[in-house]
């Protein structure tokens, strides 16, 4: 099991959530680690899913509150 990191981008709008996710995943995570991105910006959920799938990272979304999601990106 890899390590878990949390990225709180609540209240931030595009492109900040995706940008910070990219930076964290590519620079700080090792293969198998998971980044838990918490966002309330629907568009960002889409962006992060698209980017993760494009780069082969495993991605899963759970709704943690009304209109608030945790996107779990596990690095390839």
């Amino acid at each position: 099991m890899g390590k878990k990191y949390v990225l709180d981008v609540l209240g931030e709008v595009c492109p900040v959530p995706l940008f910070k996710t990219k930076e964290k995943v590519t620079r700080e995570l090792s293969s198998g680690d998971t980044l838990l991105v918490e966002t309330d910006f629907p568009r960002a959920v889409r962006n992060i899913i698209d980017w993760s799938e494009k780069h082969g990272h495993h991605v899963k979304v759970i709704e943690i509150d009304e209109a608030c999601w945790q996107v779990q990106v596990t690095k390839k």
Binding site: L10, G11, D40, P42, A67
Partner: peptide
């Protein structure tokens, strides 16, 4: 309707 409405938190003075 699409359940995306939410009062967003203000992240700080900078925002």
């Amino acid at each position: 309707i699409s359940r995306e409405f939410r009062f967003k938190k203000i992240t700080g003075k900078r925002q």
